[in-house]
Nucleic acid binder design. Structure first.
Length: 295
DNA sequence: CGTAGACCCTGCGCGC
DNA sequence: TGCGCGCAGGGTCTAC
């Protein structure tokens, strides 16, 4: 569910309510995520420590605690975080929001299906990590060693940073030949551009998803970089405004506020020229584009 | 080195 | 109404 904007919206929701609080207890259960949960390491690194910052790198959420350790969470495809307030009432709300599919059976097990991790805070709040498809990740590491960690070492530039521009894309494309859409989604080039916003940014820039990166001139790279940035920033603003009403840290609501120009709109009219939107498959992922607007 | 494809896993929506 | 199939926001590994 999460691309960079959704992760960033969750981060902004959680940060003011978690920074300054303390990790009281880590509760790890459910089957392994992409990598097995190391409950002992999480407890040893985090329990009893004050949360100093909630940051983001690519699609990872980073919770820095006092003593130089960091909890890293990745939501994968289906991960969700909910921050339940102290006391019972808000708890139920969070459960309901997090488990939309479990409808019929009232006899669901108490902890909730697919609940992998619960972080109990000293204030009584609880951060729950639910991930049905188990593509997510949760691990702790020394804060100072994040850059060298294999999960982060090869990551490219942040798309909302000053370093990200047309010149960077052009340089990264040197010696490459493939289509631009998978290139945009390559985290070694630029992080956080997932399948939805890759299609959306290409549409906004008027670039055909199959165009070879070897045949993109500087002006077009500039347009594309600007489109990536603006598309992500707009999604953050829209997701953020929709989420501010929520009592929990649920990220999914943001998606319902954002309207896509082409993504998941095969056959529907392009918002700019009314030509029917087309779908194709690249690197195993669906791409949506307007054959009239994108060259 | 760069790229394409398979694979990890569960749930949902659609067509029959 | 039930069942099988295809597809889903991510990332990594292997084979070419």
């Amino acid at each position: 569910m999460p691309e960079l904007p959704e992760v960033e919206v969750v981060r902004r929701t959680l940060a003011p309510r978690m920074v300054g609080d303390r990790v009281a207890r880590i509760e790890a259960r459910a089957p392994a995520l992409r990598e097995p949960l190391d409950a002992a390491a999480l407890a040893g690194d985090l329990e009893g420590r004050r949360i100093e910052a909630v940051r983001r790198r690519a699609k990872y959420l980073l919770f820095d605690v006092k003593g130089g350790r960091t909890l890293a969470l990745h939501l994968g495809m289906s991960g969700r975080l909910t921050l339940a307030e102290a006391g019972g009432a808000a708890d139920e709300l969070a459960e309901g929001a997090a488990d939309g599919a479990a409808g019929g059976a009232a006899a669901e097990a108490a902890p909730g299906k697919h609940e992998h991790l619960v972080i109990h805070l000293a204030s009584g709040r609880r951060l729950r990590f639910v991930d049905p498809r188990r593509f997510g990740l949760a691990f702790s590491l020394p804060t100072a060693a994040i850059g060298a960690d294999p999960h982060f070492a090869h990551l490219g530039v942040e798309p909302l940073s000053d370093a990200f521009d047309g010149a960077l894309l052009k340089a990264a494309a040197r010696g490459r030949r493939g289509p631009v859409k998978p290139f945009l989604m390559d985290a070694k080039v630029v992080v956080g551009v997932g399948n939805i916003y890759a299609s959306e940014a290409l549409f906004a820039a008027g670039v055909h998803p199959r165009r070879s990166v070897a045949r993109i001139a500087p002006a077009r790279w500039r347009r594309l970089a600007a489109a990536v940035r603006e598309t992500l920033e707009r999604a953050i603003v829209q997701g953020g405004s929709s989420i501010s009403d929520f009592v929990d840290g649920e990220g999914r609501a943001g998606y319902f506020q954002v309207t896509f120009a082409v993504y998941d709109r095969e056959g529907l009219p392009c918002p700019r020229c009314a030509t029917p939107v087309r779908r194709l498959v690249q690197a195993g992922r669906s791409t949506f584009y307007c054959p009239g607007c994108q060259t």
